[in-house]
Amino acid sequence: MDTDQSKNKVSLKEVGLSADVLMGLYTCLLKTRQLDEKLRRLFRQGRFAGTYFSAVGQEATTVGSAYGLRDDDIIGPSHREIGAMVAKGVPLSVIVAQVYARSSSPDKGKSHPCHYGYRPKGIINPSSTVAGQTVVATGCAMAFKIQKKDNIALAYFGEGATARGGWHEALNFAGIHKLPIVYICENNLWAESVPASLEAGIEHFADRSKAYGFQGITIDGNDLVVVHKAASEAIAKARSGGGPTLIECLTYRWYGHSEIDPANYRRSEELEEWKKKDPILGTEKLLTKLGLLATGKREALVEQVNQEIEEAVKTAEATKYAEPEEAYNDVYSDKFPVRRDELGMGGKQ
């Protein structure tokens, strides 16, 4: 027997996940990466307006934690959770329509390219206020407790968001009432241009949970299996009345804060180090060892994913913006139509 090969072998039992789950996770991971890179290119080509927040490098954190959630579980996202959208089953056509601000977008073009939300999958359309949806998602968990339901909420935020007052108010309340919520901190070491060392006086953001009376853990956010297992455990705990968990996922964004940021504040060595920990490569290595990624399988999958993405982009580009008058809708319920005053002059025009 070839000793080298046996050393490389890993069993599914050791990994602790089924082949189906592993391949499902990997497919979402790959889809997210391909979609994210594609959207970056499209933005650079000027094909859609505004800006684009890439999450390339952070896919394992968002995919691993959202994968397996129920449709009626709630996600309170921030701005870098494209992977969570894919993993929770938001159609790619919906994600691309959002980025393109077309009439087919869930928000009909009213919000912002990367503010993904989709009610059929329990995803709250986010505001831009950092940590905003951490507070709101905690309120969803409060409601689930009052309603005696077993739904849970998942809140996503960057490490920078943990400096905000509302964030602390929310976690404090969740701790008091043992709410069914899991907090996912995507620690990518930077809040726009500000390094983690200037964001907090502690090294590990998970430690913040101690002040609120529940568990916080710091994990490798680029290891898809580690993230999925830690999140699943926390979700099961929340669902069964065990209260909240704060999971700090150590990860890194490969590109600027948004596409208009050259990220000159970071050392290139730092980026190179993290690229070696590419979640895609890591996952593929594991799948190969498990014998789940036979020669050609990856290429076939990439081909299939790219086709799906092309399709979504084509559809979005062929779809019109909503008429400007659409701007008058969805301010209030139908009971309170907005007064129309296009010229801003009042009176009869």
């Binding site: 709630i74 309170g76 709250i124 905003g132 507070v135 709101v136 998602a137 905690t138 309120g139 969803c140 968990a141 409060m142 409601a143 689930f144 009052i146 309603q147 739904n151 909420a153 509302g166 108010e169 929310a170 309340f173």
Partner: peptide, 9 residues
């Protein structure tokens, strides 16, 4: 903010 979340669900 918590009440916003509760209202959503």
């Amino acid at each position: 903010g918590g009440c916003v979340g509760a209202a959503l669900v």
